[in-house]
Design a protein around this nucleic acid. Sequence first.
DNA 1: CGTCTTTGTCCTGGCGCTGGAGAAAGTCTG
DNA 2: CAGACTTTCTCCAGCGCCAGGACAAAGACG
Lengths: 393, 393
Amino acid sequence: MTARPANAHQARLLRLLRDGGPNSRARLGDEVDLSRSKLAVEVDRLLETGLVVADGLAASRGGRRSHNIRLAPGLRFLGIDIGATSVDVAVTNAELEILGHLTQPMDVREGPVAVFEEVLTMVGKLRDSGLAEGFDGAGIGVPGPVRFPEGVPVAPPIMPGWDGFPVREALSQELGCPVRVDNDVNLMAMGEQQAGVARSVQDFFCVKIGTGIGCGIVVGGEVHRGTTGSAGDIGHIQVDPEGRRCACGNRGCLEATFSGAALARDAESAARDGRSPELSSRLERAGRLTAADVAGAAAAGDATSLDLIREGGARTGQVIAGLVSFFNPGLVVISGGVTGLGHTLLASIRTQVYRRSLPLATGNLPIVLGELGQAAGVTGATRLISDHLFSPA
Amino acid sequence: MTARPANAHQARLLRLLRDGGPNSRARLGDEVDLSRSKLAVEVDRLLETGLVVADGLAASRGGRRSHNIRLAPGLRFLGIDIGATSVDVAVTNAELEILGHLTQPMDVREGPVAVFEEVLTMVGKLRDSGLAEGFDGAGIGVPGPVRFPEGVPVAPPIMPGWDGFPVREALSQELGCPVRVDNDVNLMAMGEQQAGVARSVQDFFCVKIGTGIGCGIVVGGEVHRGTTGSAGDIGHIQVDPEGRRCACGNRGCLEATFSGAALARDAESAARDGRSPELSSRLERAGRLTAADVAGAAAAGDATSLDLIREGGARTGQVIAGLVSFFNPGLVVISGGVTGLGHTLLASIRTQVYRRSLPLATGNLPIVLGELGQAAGVTGATRLISDHLFSPA
DNA sequence: CGTCTTTGTCCTGGCGCTGGAGAAAGTCTG
DNA sequence: CAGACTTTCTCCAGCGCCAGGACAAAGACG
């Protein structure tokens, strides 16, 4: 079992070293407001536990050079991101820098046993490639609501068979290290907060448009999970009373109108109706269409594809506008599999939000694409577990 | 200047005495996890400052009777709630029990100077009636966004002339005590949390349907104000793309479709068109109609009024359903001037929310009317200032 | 009236922290 | 290159805080 900090001071120091990299005692002292002696004592204790190690001399600040310290270079965290149609696994060091990353297409509906098997194979590969001998902690995201304290999915609509499956317990057994489980969108938000566009933003949300649509909410720097762990589930907000029937039983849900799945469906239908030669030819080649095809067609100037994206962006923007009025965030991040749709989508969303929300709320509100892409989820997962391990036992 | 607690322990004790009433050292010791000696020291210091006083002997718990202590009985907090069309002022003791309460119709658009004059007159009346000699703190709510740290309204749509007016500074000067300013809806939420239906709920929101529509958001027991102080501004979420034009410039805003003002407007129009004899006769008697008339007519069985309420409730429920999906609260409180519409409105809102949001979010979600009515705002205001004063200096 | 329980006070020993003194290690200037 | 200045780091004395035991006070109970 890896050591844990014994008090809040040590936890604070560990997080500073995680987020700011190796540093000297003197500089750490500038940030934590402890007396030199106290700081020295706590650092010495951390050195004893092995969580941090000496790391040579720092550059001089005009006097005696100080001894750097850093988080133990051998620490390894595992980030696992189970999406609807793929699995990502990554290894990071204690500074949450990704050392190795694997992606594998996989349908989450195959159930927890099959998915776990795949995940463990991928973990094995990463281990065999020499990146890690063992793991000090793992974070895992699943595409559905999670009862966070227990680390168990609850009533997940798109992942039958996972309801109540003891993800945390099982994974902890297999890996022999502490594990935390969260919703994949929450982790994506944490990833952008840790290493992406949302650094230093206290209140924001992160809209993930992938197979479905979800939203990670950060309030005061902390993820808001809601009473039953289903906060951020915006895919079934109604955008059109006359809209399509959704799998959830209602009409005109955002997710039924625009999402990776809905976009592919609409593109295929446009291709069949002959409304877009570009899409038709792509359909003929591949046998089916995906959001990526629409992105490609749009990039090639296909008007129908551009319209689909604009229309979807407008619907999404309509929902986001409402949430912005309600929540008044300092930033909105758009991310997920549809990043290929990029700036066309973004422009369309922005138009709606800036038009519909009040000036006070939008006046200084950046709406941006996430900058981590595939890495957001796994980065957030390692952030989740490291936050846990770098807190007093 | 009233004394302030010197540390977090004292602050904790003061809040326990505020929320739990007079208590003995022994019982307090059961709750705060301090050694007897430490507790005795802190209590003695509080006694020295005069914030708490001895209050006789408690009942025996099977041994020596203990000496009760309570918050100083002479402490007085002032709660001021400035609504769009009325002003409420109340005096409470340190336990936030209302000792005196005045209401006065007043249009906030008359501007800060006129409103302040009125408020000070009301305060004078309360003082003269012997309820208080001076005030130890005051909380004030205004119907618009507030830059909370400075206590200044920002860009308030319905209160021209208030933008940038230094409410906190000015009131503090006049009253000679510390003052905190917040949005009126946030205070209403805090009121229900302090003394109403939301006691012990950590995550909820409180929808106020009055002249306009707003929403107080509580996350983890704390009010969420948003980046620019405009969080909860849900009146301008679009509910109908083809709907009425709203004062904000958009179409189909919730507030344009249903609110105290919209309801009165629709009722008058129904009365003129002869769709409702009941409303017509009320219009004839009074010259104009208000939400209260609609409530009265509905109580008398008027079908048109009932339809108006049902339709409005459905629109409101539609918006709340979306917010419930997003936020996953543990409770939704409906309050404000329309409480007269009561259970018809509530039923209509519930129907929408339970139908539209996912079962996981609504499974155990009470949607209830606020139980404090007029007192919610002023209670929240005194809670605001007492939270401030009962925190370490 | 004696015993038991609860409450409140006093006191001692221990722990942890602050901040000064001073040594160690470097930079910089003439 | 020597000496002065700066920064870093260690050591230590002294102070303050606090836990927890001993004991006294007050009352319940039989």
